[in-house]
Design a protein around this nucleic acid. Structure first.
Lengths: 235, 235
DNA sequence: TAGATTGTTAATCGATTAACAATC
DNA sequence: TAGATTGTTAATCGATTAACAATC
């Protein structure tokens, strides 16, 4: 586990625990997104029995620069072997540990409308180990949801149901006018990560991480790049 | 319509049409996303009968820097009045024109699984003028989808059905292994904007704009920031 | 006119990339 | 050893922010 190179200034290192939390907080979203991409590519390579991969091969697969790949990976340790590359299985395991996807993560869903219902059955979450274990809505449908028969509880029971669950994630897919109130209740129940599908800026305490997914906004961005590209060129 | 300030070098302007397309292609995604956000905030302000807004008020509402707001807006013209601010209705109209959301945009949906079905009924698209006018799937459900009764056609009919529709957007929500083939057919049918929900990097001609929405990736990013923030602190 | 706020320039900050010594 | 590829430094590029003259 010894480092191959000495640090420029070993004296400047704060305590280890503080160090890691700090690094996690400070790592830019762009880097984290790329880590997830690497992780997924490595999953495919491992499935195909590829044993080693170089930064330039990874870069090519994802349309990135190889220096960027090396830099991203080197943020968290020295996972490669100079002159050789990275061992696929090892690197994948490291990345999953870094991302926290090396174990099953339980998630609550609030808002069982069309989108919420679709998300329960969405295979992509399960594939990365995210498991929706319970759902809440104002109106409770007669039956459990999706292939996993996820139970749906009335929203009034949010606090009591979450109490024993040790669950830190929630997916928010309620109507706009309910979003802030529900978010407050989730946070009070110990949730500190919210994947927010509601087009509203949520106000939450500092330690809570909100990730917005705004489908209409994605559509509008796309629209911008299209608009004009082909108008009125009487071709 | 005269500019208030002279350009540093008026001679350096290329032809107008080339100029605009070029600008659209070069405008960074981050700026475009913010334009959509401004547009949405202005929609709310207009609904609340607010007539004027300053860059600093907009910045506060969205958690941005006021200089950034002014710079973003000034990219496309001089929409403000020094000493006064921006007229809400005017600015909103300008932004919608820039984004291309000042008119109804027709969209095709390919892949009517859980996610596709949810997207048809998702109110957020309709609210910004995006209308899903037809859908395609391998398996055609017995009935039309959602409140608008969107017809679902067999995927074989993609080319013939799209022929007369003057439709430039598509939403892709098919299984991973079908994604590239479907994208190719969409492009061949004249689609040049794809909102891609499939976790696969699509290869398309240069003029086609693909926007990836990767739900599992968003979840993984969130997971990174959570992991570690509270472990093992026997509190 | 005095006060306010724009559009823009210059300074800062951060992220990407090129280059290369270290090393397998 | 010779060839390859890492981790890292320094250079480049782009995006954000501060500051202010222009102007309503």
């Amino acid at each position: 586990m010894a480092r191959r190179r000495t640090r420029t200034s070993p004296a400047s290192q704060p305590s280890a625990a503080h160090d890691e939390n700090d690094r996690n907080r400070r790592t830019p979203t762009a880097v984290v997104k790329r880590l997830s991409l690497y992780s997924r590519v490595l999953q495919a390579l491992e499935r195909d029995k590829v044993e080693k991969v170089s930064s330039s091969a990874l870069a090519r697969l994802l349309g990135l620069n190889s220096a960027q790949v090396r830099k991203d990976l080197a943020t968290f340790g020295e996972f490669g072997v100079p002159g050789f590359g990275y061992r696929v299985a090892d690197l994948r395991r490291e990345l999953r540990t870094i991302l926290g996807t090396n174990r099953e993560n339980h998630v609550a869903l609030v808002g069982v409308g069309h989108l919420g219902t679709a998300l329960v059955s969405y295979g992509g979450f399960a594939r990365q180990g995210f498991r929706i274990v319970c759902a809440f809505d104002k109106v409770v449908p007669g039956r459990a949801l999706g292939p996993d028969r996820v139970p749906v509880f009335p929203i009034e029971e949010l606090e009591t149901r979450l109490r024993g669950l040790d669950l830190r994630f929630a997916i928010l897919a309620v109507p706009s006018d309910a979003a802030q109130a529900v978010a407050d209740r989730l946070v009070a129940s110990g949730v500190d990560g919210i994947l927010n599908f509601v087009p509203v800026r949520l106000h939450t305490p500092h330690h809570v991480k909100v990730h917005d997914v705004d489908l209409a906004l994605e559509m509008e961005s796309l629209c911008f790049y299209l608009k004009g590209a082909g108008d009125d060129f009487g071709g």
